[in-house]
Design a binder for these strands. Structure first.
Lengths: 145, 145
DNA sequence: TCCATATTGATATTGAATTTCATTTTCATG
DNA sequence: CATGAAAATGAAATTCAATATCAATATGGA
Protein backbone atom coordinates (compact mmCIF):
# COMPACT_ATOMS: atom_id res chain seq x y z
CA UNK A 1 0.00 0.00 0.00
CA UNK A 2 0.87 3.64 -0.02
CA UNK A 3 2.70 5.86 2.45
CA UNK A 4 5.05 3.13 3.61
CA UNK A 5 7.59 5.67 4.76
CA UNK A 6 5.17 7.63 6.88
CA UNK A 7 3.81 4.44 8.38
CA UNK A 8 7.28 3.24 9.27
CA UNK A 9 7.97 6.58 10.83
CA UNK A 10 4.77 6.48 12.86
CA UNK A 11 5.43 2.90 13.91
CA UNK A 12 8.85 3.74 15.24
CA UNK A 13 7.47 6.73 17.09
CA UNK A 14 4.88 4.48 18.70
CA UNK A 15 7.48 1.92 19.62
CA UNK A 16 9.80 4.57 21.01
CA UNK A 17 7.06 5.76 23.32
CA UNK A 18 6.27 2.24 24.44
CA UNK A 19 2.87 2.45 22.87
CA UNK A 20 1.30 -0.28 20.84
CA UNK A 21 0.66 -0.78 17.19
CA UNK A 22 -2.97 -0.93 16.13
CA UNK A 23 -4.91 -1.48 12.98
CA UNK A 24 -7.00 1.65 13.66
CA UNK A 25 -3.99 3.92 13.95
CA UNK A 26 -2.60 2.73 10.66
CA UNK A 27 -5.94 3.05 8.93
CA UNK A 28 -6.42 6.55 10.26
CA UNK A 29 -2.93 7.56 9.18
CA UNK A 30 -3.44 6.15 5.73
CA UNK A 31 -6.80 7.78 5.17
CA UNK A 32 -5.47 11.04 6.54
CA UNK A 33 -2.52 11.02 4.14
CA UNK A 34 -4.59 9.91 1.18
CA UNK A 35 -6.43 13.20 1.44
CA UNK A 36 -4.72 16.22 0.02
CA UNK A 37 -7.07 18.61 1.72
CA UNK A 38 -6.85 20.01 5.19
CA UNK A 39 -9.40 17.93 7.05
CA UNK A 40 -11.30 18.59 10.24
CA UNK A 41 -11.41 15.86 12.85
CA UNK A 42 -15.03 15.23 11.98
CA UNK A 43 -14.36 14.96 8.26
CA UNK A 44 -11.60 12.48 8.93
CA UNK A 45 -13.89 10.56 11.28
CA UNK A 46 -16.50 10.19 8.55
CA UNK A 47 -13.96 9.01 6.03
CA UNK A 48 -12.46 6.47 8.36
CA UNK A 49 -15.95 5.33 9.35
CA UNK A 50 -16.69 4.39 5.76
CA UNK A 51 -13.94 1.78 5.63
CA UNK A 52 -14.00 1.01 9.32
CA UNK A 53 -17.55 1.42 10.61
CA UNK A 54 -16.76 0.46 14.17
CA UNK A 55 -14.21 3.19 14.76
CA UNK A 56 -14.95 5.60 17.57
CA UNK A 57 -14.72 9.34 17.63
CA UNK A 58 -12.22 9.28 20.46
CA UNK A 59 -9.83 7.10 18.52
CA UNK A 60 -9.71 9.70 15.78
CA UNK A 61 -8.86 12.43 18.26
CA UNK A 62 -6.36 10.29 20.08
CA UNK A 63 -4.62 9.31 16.88
CA UNK A 64 -4.58 12.85 15.55
CA UNK A 65 -2.91 13.90 18.77
CA UNK A 66 -0.23 11.27 18.31
CA UNK A 67 0.27 12.28 14.70
CA UNK A 68 0.73 15.89 15.76
CA UNK A 69 3.11 14.90 18.53
CA UNK A 70 5.36 13.00 16.18
CA UNK A 71 5.29 15.71 13.55
CA UNK A 72 3.27 14.01 10.84
CA UNK A 73 0.56 16.61 11.04
CA UNK A 74 -0.31 19.82 12.80
CA UNK A 75 -3.38 21.69 13.88
CA UNK A 76 -4.41 24.73 11.93
CA UNK A 77 -6.78 27.00 13.79
CA UNK A 78 -8.75 29.05 11.33
CA UNK A 79 -10.37 32.39 11.74
CA UNK A 80 -13.86 30.95 11.95
CA UNK A 81 -12.96 28.71 14.84
CA UNK A 82 -12.63 25.48 12.89
CA UNK A 83 -9.55 23.36 13.41
CA UNK A 84 -8.07 21.61 10.40
CA UNK A 85 -5.21 19.16 10.32
CA UNK A 86 -2.54 19.52 7.72
CA UNK A 87 0.21 17.22 6.51
CA UNK A 88 3.61 18.06 7.87
CA UNK A 89 5.71 15.02 7.11
CA UNK A 90 8.31 16.10 4.58
CA UNK A 91 6.40 19.32 4.08
CA UNK A 92 8.55 22.24 5.09
CA UNK A 93 7.13 25.21 6.94
CA UNK A 94 4.62 27.21 4.96
CA UNK A 95 1.99 29.88 5.32
CA UNK A 96 -1.56 29.83 3.95
CA UNK A 97 -3.64 31.68 1.44
CA UNK A 98 -7.28 30.92 2.17
CA UNK A 99 -10.23 31.73 -0.06
CA UNK A 100 -13.05 33.31 1.89
CA UNK A 101 -15.63 32.03 -0.58
CA UNK A 102 -14.72 28.44 -1.42
CA UNK A 103 -12.31 27.71 1.38
CA UNK A 104 -9.50 26.62 -0.91
CA UNK A 105 -6.12 26.72 0.82
CA UNK A 106 -2.84 27.31 -0.94
CA UNK A 107 0.43 26.69 0.86
CA UNK A 108 3.04 29.34 0.24
CA UNK A 109 6.38 30.51 1.55
CA UNK A 110 8.29 33.72 1.07
CA UNK A 111 11.81 33.64 2.50
CA UNK A 112 11.87 37.42 2.62
CA UNK A 113 8.79 37.56 4.80
CA UNK A 114 10.37 35.03 7.12
CA UNK A 115 13.49 37.17 7.38
CA UNK A 116 11.54 40.33 8.03
CA UNK A 117 9.66 38.60 10.79
CA UNK A 118 12.92 37.76 12.46
CA UNK A 119 14.01 41.35 12.12
CA UNK A 120 10.75 42.59 13.57
CA UNK A 121 11.02 40.21 16.50
CA UNK A 122 14.61 41.17 17.17
CA UNK A 123 13.63 44.82 17.27
CA UNK A 124 11.35 44.02 20.22
CA UNK A 125 13.88 41.73 21.79
CA UNK A 126 11.90 38.57 21.11
CA UNK A 127 13.44 35.27 20.12
CA UNK A 128 11.06 33.71 17.65
CA UNK A 129 10.10 30.12 17.85
CA UNK A 130 7.35 29.85 15.28
CA UNK A 131 4.66 31.86 13.61
CA UNK A 132 1.34 31.56 11.94
CA UNK A 133 0.45 33.60 8.90
CA UNK A 134 -3.04 33.21 7.49
CA UNK A 135 -3.93 35.36 4.51
CA UNK A 136 -7.62 35.56 3.65
CA UNK A 137 -8.96 36.72 0.32
CA UNK A 138 -10.54 35.59 -2.92
CA UNK A 139 -8.98 32.91 -5.09
CA UNK A 140 -8.86 33.36 -8.88
CA UNK A 141 -11.92 31.20 -9.51
CA UNK A 142 -14.07 32.95 -6.95
CA UNK A 143 -13.16 36.40 -8.20
CA UNK A 144 -14.84 35.81 -11.53
CA UNK A 145 -18.05 34.40 -10.07
CA UNK B 1 -15.67 59.72 32.63
CA UNK B 2 -13.22 58.34 30.20
CA UNK B 3 -13.56 57.11 26.66
CA UNK B 4 -16.26 59.60 25.75
CA UNK B 5 -15.44 59.33 22.08
CA UNK B 6 -15.70 55.57 21.97
CA UNK B 7 -18.93 55.67 23.91
CA UNK B 8 -20.42 58.23 21.51
CA UNK B 9 -19.36 56.04 18.64
CA UNK B 10 -20.92 52.95 20.19
CA UNK B 11 -24.10 54.85 21.02
CA UNK B 12 -24.56 56.01 17.47
CA UNK B 13 -23.94 52.51 16.19
CA UNK B 14 -26.62 51.22 18.53
CA UNK B 15 -29.04 53.90 17.46
CA UNK B 16 -28.32 53.29 13.80
CA UNK B 17 -29.21 49.63 14.22
CA UNK B 18 -32.42 50.48 16.09
CA UNK B 19 -31.10 48.91 19.22
CA UNK B 20 -31.41 50.41 22.65
CA UNK B 21 -29.00 52.08 24.99
CA UNK B 22 -28.27 50.24 28.21
CA UNK B 23 -26.25 50.82 31.33
CA UNK B 24 -24.68 47.36 31.01
CA UNK B 25 -23.41 47.97 27.51
CA UNK B 26 -21.76 51.20 28.50
CA UNK B 27 -20.20 49.65 31.59
CA UNK B 28 -18.86 46.74 29.62
CA UNK B 29 -17.40 49.05 27.00
CA UNK B 30 -15.75 51.20 29.62
CA UNK B 31 -14.25 48.33 31.55
CA UNK B 32 -13.11 46.74 28.33
CA UNK B 33 -11.36 49.92 27.22
CA UNK B 34 -9.86 50.62 30.61
CA UNK B 35 -7.85 47.44 30.22
CA UNK B 36 -4.79 47.61 28.07
CA UNK B 37 -4.47 43.86 27.89
CA UNK B 38 -6.10 41.50 25.47
CA UNK B 39 -8.87 40.01 27.58
CA UNK B 40 -10.80 36.81 27.24
CA UNK B 41 -14.57 36.97 27.52
CA UNK B 42 -14.33 35.33 30.90
CA UNK B 43 -11.72 37.75 32.21
CA UNK B 44 -13.89 40.65 31.11
CA UNK B 45 -16.91 39.03 32.72
CA UNK B 46 -15.11 38.83 36.06
CA UNK B 47 -14.01 42.43 35.88
CA UNK B 48 -17.46 43.69 35.01
CA UNK B 49 -18.95 41.48 37.71
CA UNK B 50 -16.89 43.30 40.35
CA UNK B 51 -18.54 46.63 39.64
CA UNK B 52 -21.79 45.20 38.45
CA UNK B 53 -22.47 41.96 40.31
CA UNK B 54 -25.76 41.24 38.66
CA UNK B 55 -24.41 41.16 35.13
CA UNK B 56 -24.94 37.93 33.22
CA UNK B 57 -22.47 36.02 31.16
CA UNK B 58 -24.62 36.30 28.07
CA UNK B 59 -24.63 40.07 28.24
CA UNK B 60 -20.84 40.06 28.05
CA UNK B 61 -20.88 37.88 24.96
CA UNK B 62 -23.70 39.84 23.37
CA UNK B 63 -21.96 43.13 23.99
CA UNK B 64 -18.60 41.86 22.76
CA UNK B 65 -20.33 40.78 19.57
CA UNK B 66 -21.75 44.26 19.12
CA UNK B 67 -18.38 45.83 19.83
CA UNK B 68 -16.79 43.61 17.21
CA UNK B 69 -19.53 44.36 14.71
CA UNK B 70 -19.05 48.10 15.02
CA UNK B 71 -15.29 47.84 14.88
CA UNK B 72 -14.37 48.79 18.43
CA UNK B 73 -12.78 45.45 19.06
CA UNK B 74 -11.94 42.22 17.32
CA UNK B 75 -11.48 38.58 18.19
CA UNK B 76 -8.01 37.18 18.28
CA UNK B 77 -7.86 33.42 18.08
CA UNK B 78 -4.68 32.19 19.61
CA UNK B 79 -2.74 29.05 18.99
CA UNK B 80 -3.84 27.41 22.20
CA UNK B 81 -7.51 27.78 21.38
CA UNK B 82 -8.22 30.78 23.59
CA UNK B 83 -10.01 33.75 22.14
CA UNK B 84 -8.96 37.22 23.25
CA UNK B 85 -10.53 40.53 22.40
CA UNK B 86 -8.35 43.41 21.38
CA UNK B 87 -9.00 47.12 21.01
CA UNK B 88 -9.48 48.25 17.46
CA UNK B 89 -10.94 51.72 17.76
CA UNK B 90 -8.33 54.11 16.43
CA UNK B 91 -5.81 51.30 16.47
CA UNK B 92 -4.58 50.63 12.98
CA UNK B 93 -3.99 47.12 11.74
CA UNK B 94 -1.18 45.31 13.51
CA UNK B 95 0.33 41.90 13.98
CA UNK B 96 1.33 40.24 17.24
CA UNK B 97 4.43 39.06 19.00
CA UNK B 98 3.39 36.67 21.77
CA UNK B 99 5.58 35.37 24.54
CA UNK B 100 5.22 31.64 24.98
CA UNK B 101 6.17 31.84 28.63
CA UNK B 102 4.38 34.85 30.12
CA UNK B 103 1.80 35.47 27.44
CA UNK B 104 2.78 39.09 26.92
CA UNK B 105 1.57 40.44 23.59
CA UNK B 106 3.26 43.19 21.64
CA UNK B 107 1.53 44.82 18.72
CA UNK B 108 3.76 45.42 15.74
CA UNK B 109 3.56 46.37 12.10
CA UNK B 110 6.06 46.12 9.30
CA UNK B 111 4.95 47.80 6.08
CA UNK B 112 7.40 45.72 4.12
CA UNK B 113 5.89 42.50 5.35
CA UNK B 114 2.46 43.79 4.39
CA UNK B 115 3.69 44.58 0.88
CA UNK B 116 5.34 41.21 0.48
CA UNK B 117 2.13 39.52 1.49
CA UNK B 118 0.32 41.34 -1.26
CA UNK B 119 2.98 40.27 -3.72
CA UNK B 120 2.75 36.68 -2.55
CA UNK B 121 -1.02 36.70 -2.90
CA UNK B 122 -0.88 38.24 -6.34
CA UNK B 123 1.49 35.52 -7.46
CA UNK B 124 -1.22 32.97 -6.70
CA UNK B 125 -3.95 35.14 -8.16
CA UNK B 126 -5.53 35.90 -4.80
CA UNK B 127 -7.02 39.25 -3.86
CA UNK B 128 -6.23 39.74 -0.19
CA UNK B 129 -8.79 40.99 2.22
CA UNK B 130 -7.05 40.56 5.56
CA UNK B 131 -4.46 38.48 7.29
CA UNK B 132 -3.43 37.23 10.67
CA UNK B 133 0.19 37.04 11.68
CA UNK B 134 0.97 35.62 15.09
CA UNK B 135 4.63 35.32 16.02
CA UNK B 136 5.39 33.17 19.05
CA UNK B 137 8.64 33.27 20.96
CA UNK B 138 10.30 34.45 24.14
CA UNK B 139 10.12 38.04 25.28
CA UNK B 140 13.23 39.77 26.68
CA UNK B 141 12.25 39.21 30.30
CA UNK B 142 11.51 35.54 29.88
CA UNK B 143 14.76 34.87 28.04
CA UNK B 144 16.84 35.72 31.10
CA UNK B 145 14.82 33.59 33.49
C1' DT C 1 -47.80 58.34 30.44
C1' DC C 2 -48.29 54.47 27.40
C1' DC C 3 -46.69 50.51 25.05
C1' DA C 4 -44.23 48.06 21.43
C1' DT C 5 -39.91 46.33 21.29
C1' DA C 6 -35.25 45.48 22.80
C1' DT C 7 -32.49 43.94 26.77
C1' DT C 8 -31.39 41.43 30.65
C1' DG C 9 -29.95 37.46 33.51
C1' DA C 10 -31.01 32.83 35.09
C1' DT C 11 -31.18 28.70 33.17
C1' DA C 12 -31.08 25.27 29.61
C1' DT C 13 -28.89 23.81 25.51
C1' DT C 14 -25.42 23.05 22.13
C1' DG C 15 -21.39 20.97 20.07
C1' DA C 16 -16.64 19.94 19.84
C1' DA C 17 -13.33 17.76 22.45
C1' DT C 18 -12.03 14.86 26.35
C1' DT C 19 -12.54 11.42 29.95
C1' DT C 20 -14.15 7.14 31.86
C1' DC C 21 -14.37 2.41 31.97
C1' DA C 22 -15.38 -2.36 30.77
C1' DT C 23 -13.75 -5.11 27.09
C1' DT C 24 -10.44 -6.31 23.61
C1' DT C 25 -5.87 -6.29 21.57
C1' DT C 26 -0.96 -6.17 21.52
C1' DC C 27 3.40 -8.08 22.43
C1' DA C 28 7.36 -9.41 25.48
C1' DT C 29 8.33 -13.46 27.86
C1' DG C 30 8.44 -18.19 29.03
C1' DC D 1 2.40 -21.12 20.81
C1' DA D 2 0.23 -19.64 25.61
C1' DT D 3 0.24 -16.20 29.24
C1' DG D 4 -0.58 -11.91 31.35
C1' DA D 5 0.61 -7.03 32.07
C1' DA D 6 -0.22 -2.93 29.88
C1' DA D 7 -2.14 -0.28 26.19
C1' DA D 8 -6.01 0.62 22.96
C1' DT D 9 -10.65 0.64 21.75
C1' DG D 10 -15.50 2.37 21.45
C1' DA D 11 -19.71 3.63 23.78
C1' DA D 12 -21.29 6.60 26.86
C1' DA D 13 -20.67 10.24 30.13
C1' DT D 14 -18.56 14.54 30.96
C1' DT D 15 -16.54 19.01 30.25
C1' DC D 16 -16.61 23.71 28.98
C1' DA D 17 -17.07 27.77 26.30
C1' DA D 18 -20.48 29.77 23.68
C1' DT D 19 -25.32 30.30 22.43
C1' DA D 20 -30.35 30.10 22.84
C1' DT D 21 -34.64 30.43 25.56
C1' DC D 22 -37.80 32.98 28.08
C1' DA D 23 -40.13 35.56 31.71
C1' DA D 24 -39.29 39.92 33.74
C1' DT D 25 -37.53 44.56 33.06
C1' DA D 26 -35.91 48.75 30.71
C1' DT D 27 -35.90 51.88 26.86
C1' DG D 28 -37.59 55.49 24.08
C1' DG D 29 -40.85 57.25 20.48
C1' DA D 30 -45.68 58.70 20.34
Amino acid sequence: MAFEEEKKFFESYIREKNLKWSEQRMQILEIFLRNKKHLTADELYRMVKEKFPSVGYSTIYRTLKLLCDCGICSELRLDDGTIRFEHLYRHKHHDHLICLKCGRMVEVVDPEIEKLQERLAKKEGFILERHILLMYGLCPKCQSK
